[in-house]
Design a protein around this nucleic acid. Structure first.
Lengths: 206, 206, 206, 206
DNA sequence: TATGAATGAGGCTTCATTCAT
DNA sequence: TATGAATGAAGCCTCATTCAT
């Protein structure tokens, strides 16, 4: 029942919500059309098949997420600063765009999304690898298997976002983000670079 | 096409594989029956509905996983030792029972599994919370939001298992496990308890 | 195999025939579709469920029957004339629309038809009660339990229709109708109002 | 869950109840077995098929009904007395054996019961025809189409039983029976044989 | 561009019946 | 006689997709 000058956009927005709420197979195209306020046939004018719809959605969301997460990274001086900003970006975007976050997690490894879209999606997050490698060169990140570090970092962020989403107040949220980033950095950091606190308001603490 | 004296068991085993390969809605009950080598009606003799089947499966797998992960924990002296053993148990079980691991991750938050089964599954992992709290009392684990620590720990293990599963050789695997456990422990540990290496072969290192 | 501009109408007509021939459960929706010359899905486009189909049919037939039976009643001078016309209407409609008649009898008390449809159907025959009460006020119908009179009248008409339907010639039919209406009227009439013959061709008799 | 030394008898009794409550197709054989307290296979030991079960039941009930209805008829002096007794027998049996009555009505013209069983059932009611013919010979019953008279009589009894079953008190019941039998007799009787009241307690009235 | 009636393959589930024990 | 696990045909219904308008 949305009103929008662009029906395609409305369809994508509606599909995102429904896919997250009910899953891929749990969401009939007829329902998407109805909730988007268009006829059943219209969906198939814009998207060849249902899979084409989710594929398009996946690419779009993944691109938006990557864009949001690496925003401002180039202005940071070193790997640690970059990583902390990346973390904050990730948490901010993940909590603000809850549906898109869930959508990405749901369909990251699902067979509904085409392999090419999966690959395209992954490629947008290669900057994470660059960041890790930069830290290793700097000597601030442990010189161990980079694949492991990326996996651990990504999954930790994912856990952090989930926890933050469940937080009650804004201040609790801030505390948890700081603690979570500590966790990640301490996991990544070379010996002499560990610290205990990266939360904003506690800067200067021992 | 399996041969087993117990048809119910065969159905569960077959369903596990297919659900992981193809998802819940992507797996027709007729396919499960066929691959299990029984008639279509037989599935519904043992399980009232398709949801009953996945529910039973979920409870079973979750119970098995919990049992495997907390094995031997009581013999360890302190929280750190327990956590490291837990990590090794988790990685061992997760890589050995790859399908079951994926199954748990897939259906942990999915609407196909009944809420009661979800709760029952979660309850089996409460020992993780106990472990964290024990460490905090000991002073070896940081005294911060336990919910966060549990989320971070669990998601980190999940990332670690994924990376280990992709490893080539047995020795590479061992190295990565040690490094991954370092990551987790350094994330959890209080300041004075951090170390750099928990991999088996490096015991005795500083 | 019917040809009609309206598929919904064709489905209803086909379903009526098949339900009478084979009963509700004896008639697969697939057969209705096939005989109606439409795809299986089309039936469910027009009717949400099989029960919705029979429900719609029931309402429609019941309404048509009631309408046919009370046709012209208001032009008759007294209860007796009305009742005889009602009887002739009933027999005429019942023999002409044999299938619809059987359908009504079959499904009047069956659980396939929703309670609301049953009630709606019944409400259309309340004019019978009015008629009986009018006769009682006039003094031409025995002043006894009206519920009984309605039941007896209705079941007698039903028996009459069945007998007439089995009749061979048109003239035999006419004779039987007259005799049957005598039966009913003599059953209903107050003492001084009985007569022996209400058949058309005997008009003018005492 | 009945206990009976004869399982076949228990199955028949259970099936009668369930068929009336839920119809033929609405009653799975598995339910009959369960409610009768026997295994699924046992039903098929006693009855070759489900249709064989209902067929047996139909014959049995029909025979019992006919036997009950013509009881004592031979001791009555004339057709009218016989008919009134028949009516009372019918009402008595029909209200006392409500389930069996409904069963007979439900399955009288249904395709579940074999044609031979239908015929056998009908043949047991031929005494009605004899009774009508006797009355015609006597001159007490109108000399018109006997088929019509039988149909009208039978359907009237059916209506009467339905009304009596809905009656509240025993005395109301008695009144209605008397009035109903009046209706029937007045419908059947030759001119000079009509009367107004056949209810027991009003004998001797004008 | 947009519509929505129409399609028909395919999914889940039921249930009469069999048969080894 | 009696059991109940096992069978598989068949039923109701959903839904992605098409196409005439």
């Amino acid at each position: 029942m949305e009103v929008s000058k662009d029906k395609q956009e409305t369809l994508l927005k509606t599909a995102l919500r429904l896919f997250v709420e009910r899953g891929f197979y749990g969401t009939p195209t007829s329902l998407i059309s109805k909730e988007a306020g268009v006829a059943t046939g219209t969906l198939f004018f814009y998207f060849k098949t249902k899979e084409d719809l989710i594929d398009t959605l996946y690419r779009q969301v993944k691109a938006e997420a990557a864009e949001a997460m690496c925003r401002g990274l180039d202005n940071e001086p070193d790997a640690k600063a970059k990583l902390l900003l990346l973390g904050r970006n990730a948490v901010a975007w993940g909590t603000e765009h809850h549906e898109k976050m869930k959508f990405m997690e749901f369909f990251a490894h699902s067979p509904f999304v085409s392999t090419t879209a999966q690959k395209e999606g992954m490629s947008r997050f290669l900057f994470m690898q660059d960041l890790i490698e930069e830290g290793i060169r700097e000597g601030t990140i442990r010189d161990i298997d980079t694949g492991l570090l990326i996996f651990m970092m990504a999954s930790s962020f994912s856990g952090l976002i989930a926890r933050v989403a469940a937080a009650g107040s804004e201040s609790e949220r801030e505390t948890i983000i700081g603690q979570g980033l500590d966790f990640v950095w301490n996991g990544l950091a070379a010996d002499n670079d560990k610290e205990q606190n990266n939360s904003k308001r506690s800067k200067g603490k021992t």
